[in-house]
Protein backbone atom coordinates (compact mmCIF):
# COMPACT_ATOMS: atom_id res chain seq x y z
CA UNK A 1 0.00 0.00 0.00
CA UNK A 2 1.42 3.38 -0.92
CA UNK A 3 1.91 5.84 1.93
CA UNK A 4 3.16 9.42 2.19
CA UNK A 5 5.03 10.71 5.23
CA UNK A 6 5.13 14.23 6.71
CA UNK A 7 8.42 14.91 4.91
CA UNK A 8 6.94 14.15 1.48
CA UNK A 9 8.51 10.70 1.26
CA UNK A 10 6.30 8.17 -0.48
CA UNK A 11 6.84 4.46 0.15
CA UNK A 12 5.25 1.46 -1.54
CA UNK A 13 4.32 3.29 -4.77
CA UNK A 14 4.21 1.25 -8.00
CA UNK A 15 7.43 2.96 -9.15
CA UNK A 16 9.26 2.24 -5.88
CA UNK A 17 8.11 -1.39 -5.98
CA UNK A 18 9.01 -1.90 -9.64
CA UNK A 19 12.26 -0.02 -9.03
CA UNK A 20 13.83 -2.89 -7.11
CA UNK A 21 12.96 -5.33 -9.93
CA UNK A 22 14.70 -2.95 -12.36
CA UNK A 23 17.84 -3.08 -10.18
CA UNK A 24 17.88 -6.89 -10.26
CA UNK A 25 17.94 -7.08 -14.06
CA UNK A 26 20.79 -8.98 -15.64
CA UNK A 27 21.32 -10.82 -12.38
CA UNK A 28 20.72 -14.19 -10.76
CA UNK A 29 18.37 -14.79 -7.81
CA UNK A 30 19.22 -17.99 -5.97
CA UNK A 31 17.12 -20.29 -3.77
CA UNK A 32 18.83 -20.89 -0.41
CA UNK A 33 17.76 -22.90 2.63
CA UNK A 34 20.42 -21.87 5.18
CA UNK A 35 22.45 -18.75 6.06
CA UNK A 36 25.57 -20.60 4.85
CA UNK A 37 24.03 -21.17 1.42
CA UNK A 38 22.99 -17.50 1.35
CA UNK A 39 26.64 -16.52 1.91
CA UNK A 40 27.73 -18.83 -0.91
CA UNK A 41 25.16 -17.17 -3.18
CA UNK A 42 26.26 -13.65 -2.21
CA UNK A 43 29.93 -14.57 -2.66
CA UNK A 44 29.14 -15.90 -6.13
CA UNK A 45 27.55 -12.58 -7.14
CA UNK A 46 23.82 -13.31 -6.70
CA UNK A 47 21.70 -10.13 -6.81
CA UNK A 48 19.22 -11.55 -4.29
CA UNK A 49 18.37 -14.77 -2.48
CA UNK A 50 15.05 -16.57 -2.09
CA UNK A 51 14.84 -17.87 1.48
CA UNK A 52 12.92 -21.14 1.75
CA UNK A 53 12.91 -24.32 3.82
CA UNK A 54 13.23 -26.78 0.96
CA UNK A 55 14.29 -26.23 -2.64
CA UNK A 56 11.64 -27.22 -5.22
CA UNK A 57 13.36 -30.56 -6.02
CA UNK A 58 12.93 -31.58 -2.36
CA UNK A 59 9.36 -30.28 -2.17
CA UNK A 60 8.63 -32.44 -5.19
CA UNK A 61 10.31 -35.49 -3.64
CA UNK A 62 8.76 -35.10 -0.18
CA UNK A 63 5.19 -34.35 -1.29
CA UNK A 64 2.66 -33.12 1.28
CA UNK A 65 1.70 -29.48 1.80
CA UNK A 66 4.44 -26.92 1.22
CA UNK A 67 4.01 -23.68 3.20
CA UNK A 68 5.72 -20.37 3.97
CA UNK A 69 9.11 -20.86 5.67
CA UNK A 70 9.75 -20.53 9.40
CA UNK A 71 10.32 -16.82 10.19
CA UNK A 72 13.39 -17.75 12.24
CA UNK A 73 14.99 -19.25 9.16
CA UNK A 74 14.15 -16.16 7.06
CA UNK A 75 15.55 -13.82 9.72
CA UNK A 76 18.73 -15.89 9.91
CA UNK A 77 19.26 -15.43 6.19
CA UNK A 78 18.51 -11.68 6.39
CA UNK A 79 21.25 -11.38 9.02
CA UNK A 80 23.74 -13.38 6.93
CA UNK A 81 23.71 -11.28 3.74
CA UNK A 82 23.48 -7.66 2.57
CA UNK A 83 21.70 -8.37 -0.74
CA UNK A 84 17.87 -8.40 -0.98
CA UNK A 85 16.07 -11.35 0.60
CA UNK A 86 12.88 -12.69 -0.95
CA UNK A 87 10.49 -15.29 0.46
CA UNK A 88 7.53 -17.30 -0.82
CA UNK A 89 3.87 -17.20 0.20
CA UNK A 90 1.24 -19.68 -0.98
CA UNK A 91 -1.03 -18.54 -3.81
CA UNK A 92 -3.95 -16.65 -2.23
CA UNK A 93 -2.51 -16.88 1.31
CA UNK A 94 -2.59 -13.19 2.14
CA UNK A 95 -1.85 -13.80 5.83
CA UNK A 96 1.44 -15.53 5.01
CA UNK A 97 2.16 -12.43 2.91
CA UNK A 98 1.28 -10.16 5.85
CA UNK A 99 3.73 -12.13 8.01
CA UNK A 100 6.48 -11.88 5.38
CA UNK A 101 5.86 -8.14 5.15
CA UNK A 102 6.13 -7.88 8.94
CA UNK A 103 9.49 -9.71 8.67
CA UNK A 104 10.63 -6.95 6.28
CA UNK A 105 11.50 -9.22 3.36
CA UNK A 106 12.40 -7.27 0.21
CA UNK A 107 10.14 -9.15 -2.24
CA UNK A 108 7.36 -11.73 -1.84
CA UNK A 109 7.02 -14.52 -4.38
CA UNK A 110 3.37 -15.64 -4.54
CA UNK A 111 4.50 -19.04 -5.70
CA UNK A 112 3.06 -22.14 -7.32
CA UNK A 113 5.98 -24.06 -5.81
CA UNK A 114 4.08 -23.95 -2.50
CA UNK A 115 0.67 -25.62 -2.15
CA UNK A 116 -2.04 -23.10 -3.12
CA UNK A 117 -4.27 -21.79 -0.31
CA UNK A 118 -7.06 -20.48 -2.58
CA UNK A 119 -8.31 -22.14 -5.74
CA UNK A 120 -9.91 -19.03 -7.22
CA UNK A 121 -8.14 -15.93 -5.92
CA UNK A 122 -4.63 -14.64 -5.86
CA UNK A 123 -3.49 -12.14 -3.21
CA UNK A 124 -4.59 -8.52 -3.65
CA UNK A 125 -1.04 -7.29 -3.95
CA UNK A 126 -1.98 -3.59 -4.10
CA UNK A 127 -2.76 -3.83 -0.36
CA UNK A 128 0.95 -4.28 0.49
CA UNK A 129 4.00 -2.00 0.72
CA UNK A 130 6.34 -4.89 -0.09
CA UNK A 131 6.49 -5.72 -3.81
CA UNK A 132 5.39 -9.07 -5.25
CA UNK A 133 6.67 -11.32 -8.02
CA UNK A 134 4.31 -13.90 -9.54
CA UNK A 135 4.74 -16.74 -11.99
CA UNK A 136 3.05 -16.95 -15.40
CA UNK A 137 2.87 -19.52 -18.16
CA UNK A 138 1.28 -17.22 -20.73
CA UNK A 139 0.59 -13.54 -21.38
CA UNK A 140 -2.97 -13.59 -19.99
CA UNK A 141 -1.77 -15.01 -16.69
CA UNK A 142 1.04 -12.41 -16.54
CA UNK A 143 -1.39 -9.53 -17.12
CA UNK A 144 -3.88 -10.85 -14.55
CA UNK A 145 -1.10 -10.95 -11.96
CA UNK A 146 -0.03 -7.40 -12.90
CA UNK A 147 -3.65 -6.24 -12.57
CA UNK A 148 -3.60 -7.65 -9.02
CA UNK A 149 -0.46 -5.60 -8.27
CA UNK A 150 2.51 -7.84 -9.15
CA UNK A 151 5.60 -5.69 -9.86
CA UNK A 152 7.67 -8.41 -11.48
CA UNK A 153 6.68 -11.46 -13.54
CA UNK A 154 8.70 -14.63 -13.82
CA UNK A 155 7.91 -17.23 -16.42
CA UNK A 156 7.15 -20.36 -14.38
CA UNK A 157 8.90 -23.21 -16.10
CA UNK A 158 8.64 -26.43 -14.11
CA UNK A 159 10.43 -25.95 -10.80
CA UNK A 160 12.61 -28.68 -9.31
CA UNK A 161 13.10 -30.61 -12.54
CA UNK A 162 16.40 -29.27 -13.86
CA UNK A 163 14.61 -29.38 -17.21
CA UNK A 164 14.51 -26.12 -19.17
CA UNK A 165 11.84 -27.14 -21.68
CA UNK A 166 8.86 -25.68 -19.81
CA UNK A 167 10.64 -22.37 -19.14
CA UNK A 168 11.30 -22.09 -22.85
CA UNK A 169 7.68 -22.92 -23.67
CA UNK A 170 6.36 -20.25 -21.28
CA UNK A 171 8.81 -17.56 -22.37
CA UNK A 172 8.09 -18.20 -26.03
CA UNK A 173 4.37 -18.11 -25.36
CA UNK A 174 4.49 -14.79 -23.47
CA UNK A 175 6.92 -13.04 -25.80
CA UNK A 176 5.30 -14.48 -28.93
CA UNK A 177 1.91 -13.10 -27.93
CA UNK A 178 3.45 -9.71 -27.08
CA UNK A 179 4.87 -9.57 -30.62
CA UNK A 180 1.48 -10.44 -32.11
CA UNK A 181 -0.32 -7.82 -30.03
CA UNK A 182 2.00 -5.08 -31.21
CA UNK A 183 0.83 -5.90 -34.76
CA UNK A 184 -2.89 -5.90 -33.88
CA UNK A 185 -5.15 -3.00 -34.82
CA UNK A 186 -7.24 -1.23 -32.17
CA UNK A 187 -10.37 -3.30 -32.86
CA UNK A 188 -8.46 -6.55 -32.46
CA UNK A 189 -7.25 -5.55 -29.01
CA UNK A 190 -10.76 -6.10 -27.57
CA UNK A 191 -10.64 -9.66 -28.81
CA UNK A 192 -7.13 -10.11 -27.44
CA UNK A 193 -8.34 -8.93 -24.00
CA UNK A 194 -11.20 -11.44 -24.12
CA UNK A 195 -8.98 -14.23 -25.38
CA UNK A 196 -6.28 -13.55 -22.75
CA UNK A 197 -8.85 -12.92 -19.97
CA UNK A 198 -6.86 -9.78 -19.17
CA UNK A 199 -7.83 -6.12 -18.58
CA UNK A 200 -8.08 -4.09 -21.79
CA UNK A 201 -5.93 -1.16 -20.53
CA UNK A 202 -3.03 -3.54 -19.86
CA UNK A 203 -3.46 -5.17 -23.28
CA UNK A 204 -3.36 -1.68 -24.84
CA UNK A 205 -0.22 -0.84 -22.88
CA UNK A 206 1.50 -3.99 -24.15
CA UNK A 207 0.44 -3.12 -27.71
CA UNK A 208 1.93 0.38 -27.38
CA UNK A 209 5.17 -0.42 -25.59
CA UNK A 210 5.90 -3.91 -26.93
CA UNK A 211 6.66 -5.21 -23.44
CA UNK A 212 5.04 -5.93 -20.08
CA UNK A 213 4.58 -2.91 -17.78
CA UNK A 214 6.95 -4.64 -15.28
CA UNK A 215 10.21 -6.58 -15.70
CA UNK A 216 10.00 -10.23 -16.73
CA UNK A 217 12.46 -12.75 -15.33
CA UNK A 218 12.66 -16.50 -15.92
CA UNK A 219 12.43 -19.37 -13.43
CA UNK A 220 11.95 -23.12 -13.36
CA UNK A 221 14.52 -25.60 -14.64
CA UNK A 222 17.67 -23.49 -15.06
CA UNK A 223 20.67 -25.60 -14.06
CA UNK A 224 23.60 -24.66 -16.33
CA UNK A 225 25.23 -21.46 -17.63
CA UNK A 226 23.93 -22.43 -21.08
CA UNK A 227 20.36 -22.56 -19.71
CA UNK A 228 20.79 -19.03 -18.35
CA UNK A 229 22.14 -17.87 -21.72
CA UNK A 230 19.23 -19.52 -23.54
CA UNK A 231 16.47 -17.85 -21.56
CA UNK A 232 18.24 -14.46 -21.57
CA UNK A 233 18.63 -14.62 -25.36
CA UNK A 234 14.95 -15.52 -25.62
CA UNK A 235 14.14 -12.29 -23.78
CA UNK A 236 14.18 -12.94 -20.02
CA UNK A 237 15.63 -9.95 -18.14
CA UNK A 238 17.14 -11.95 -15.24
CA UNK A 239 17.00 -15.51 -13.92
CA UNK A 240 15.88 -17.34 -10.81
CA UNK A 241 17.80 -20.52 -10.06
CA UNK A 242 16.09 -22.83 -7.60
CA UNK A 243 17.37 -26.34 -7.14
CA UNK A 244 19.93 -25.98 -9.95
CA UNK A 245 22.74 -24.67 -7.76
CA UNK A 246 22.50 -26.36 -4.38
CA UNK A 247 21.39 -29.72 -5.83
CA UNK A 248 24.47 -29.83 -8.06
CA UNK A 249 27.74 -31.55 -7.11
CA UNK A 250 29.72 -28.32 -6.50
CA UNK A 251 27.42 -25.34 -5.85
CA UNK A 252 29.88 -22.40 -5.45
CA UNK A 253 31.62 -22.55 -8.85
CA UNK A 254 28.33 -23.33 -10.60
CA UNK A 255 26.68 -20.33 -8.94
CA UNK A 256 29.50 -18.06 -10.07
CA UNK A 257 29.39 -19.48 -13.60
CA UNK A 258 25.64 -18.87 -13.91
CA UNK A 259 26.13 -15.27 -12.69
CA UNK A 260 28.77 -14.69 -15.36
CA UNK A 261 26.56 -16.35 -17.97
CA UNK A 262 23.63 -14.05 -17.17
CA UNK A 263 25.86 -11.02 -17.83
CA UNK A 264 27.67 -12.35 -20.89
CA UNK A 265 24.70 -14.25 -22.34
CA UNK A 266 25.40 -13.19 -25.91
CA UNK A 267 29.08 -14.21 -25.91
CA UNK A 268 29.51 -17.95 -26.67
CA UNK A 269 33.25 -17.78 -25.93
CA UNK A 270 32.64 -16.59 -22.39
CA UNK A 271 29.80 -19.11 -22.00
CA UNK A 272 32.20 -21.85 -23.10
CA UNK A 273 34.82 -20.68 -20.64
CA UNK A 274 32.49 -20.51 -17.63
CA UNK A 275 30.85 -23.86 -18.47
CA UNK A 276 34.12 -25.79 -18.09
CA UNK A 277 34.69 -28.28 -15.29
CA UNK A 278 31.66 -27.48 -13.14
CA UNK A 279 31.03 -31.10 -12.10
CA UNK A 280 27.69 -32.85 -12.20
CA UNK A 281 24.62 -30.64 -12.63
CA UNK A 282 21.49 -31.52 -10.65
CA UNK A 283 19.82 -34.73 -11.86
CA UNK A 284 17.00 -33.81 -14.24
CA UNK A 285 13.45 -35.08 -14.61
CA UNK A 286 11.35 -35.73 -17.73
CA UNK A 287 8.21 -33.57 -17.69
CA UNK A 288 5.97 -36.45 -18.86
CA UNK A 289 6.95 -38.54 -15.84
CA UNK A 290 5.93 -35.93 -13.24
CA UNK A 291 3.17 -36.66 -10.73
CA UNK A 292 2.55 -32.98 -10.04
CA UNK A 293 2.86 -30.15 -12.53
CA UNK A 294 3.54 -27.08 -10.40
CA UNK A 295 3.07 -24.71 -13.35
CA UNK A 296 -0.61 -25.67 -13.57
CA UNK A 297 -1.22 -23.98 -10.20
CA UNK A 298 -2.49 -20.40 -10.51
CA UNK A 299 -5.57 -19.01 -12.22
Amino acid sequence: MAAESMTGRETGTPLVKRGLAEMLKGGVIMDVVTPDQAKVAEDAGAVAVMALERVPADIRRDGGVARMSDPEMITGIQEAVTIPVMAKARIGHFVEAQILEALDVDYIDESEVLTPADEAHHIDKWAFTVPFVCGATNLGEALRRISEGACMIRSKGEAGTGNIVEAVRHLRSIIGDIRKITQADSAELYDWAKHLRAPLPLVREVAETGWLPVPMFCAGGISTPADAGLVMQLGAEAVFVGSGIFKSADPAPRAKAIVEAATNYRDPHILAKVSRGLGEPMPGLEIDGLETRLADRGW
Partner: peptide, 30 residues
Protein backbone atom coordinates in the same frame (compact mmCIF):
# COMPACT_ATOMS: atom_id res chain seq x y z
CA UNK B 1 25.22 0.50 1.68
CA UNK B 2 21.45 0.22 2.20
CA UNK B 3 21.77 3.18 4.57
CA UNK B 4 18.15 4.18 3.92
CA UNK B 5 16.96 0.69 4.93
CA UNK B 6 15.44 -2.36 3.27
CA UNK B 7 12.87 -2.31 0.47
CA UNK B 8 9.97 -1.44 2.83
CA UNK B 9 11.75 1.88 3.41
CA UNK B 10 12.52 2.56 -0.27
CA UNK B 11 10.83 5.82 -1.23
CA UNK B 12 10.41 8.65 -3.66
CA UNK B 13 10.80 12.28 -2.63
CA UNK B 14 11.15 15.64 -4.39
CA UNK B 15 14.81 16.72 -4.46
CA UNK B 16 15.71 20.40 -4.35
CA UNK B 17 18.74 20.85 -6.59
CA UNK B 18 20.96 23.90 -6.20
CA UNK B 19 20.04 26.51 -8.82
CA UNK B 20 17.16 24.58 -10.37
CA UNK B 21 13.72 26.11 -10.74
CA UNK B 22 11.83 22.93 -9.96
CA UNK B 23 12.44 19.82 -7.86
CA UNK B 24 13.81 16.60 -9.30
CA UNK B 25 11.78 13.43 -8.61
CA UNK B 26 14.18 11.32 -6.55
CA UNK B 27 13.57 7.56 -6.33
CA UNK B 28 15.59 5.78 -3.62
CA UNK B 29 15.70 1.96 -3.80
CA UNK B 30 17.53 0.33 -0.86
Amino acid sequence: RNGYGRQSESFSAPIEVEGWESDFPGVFIR
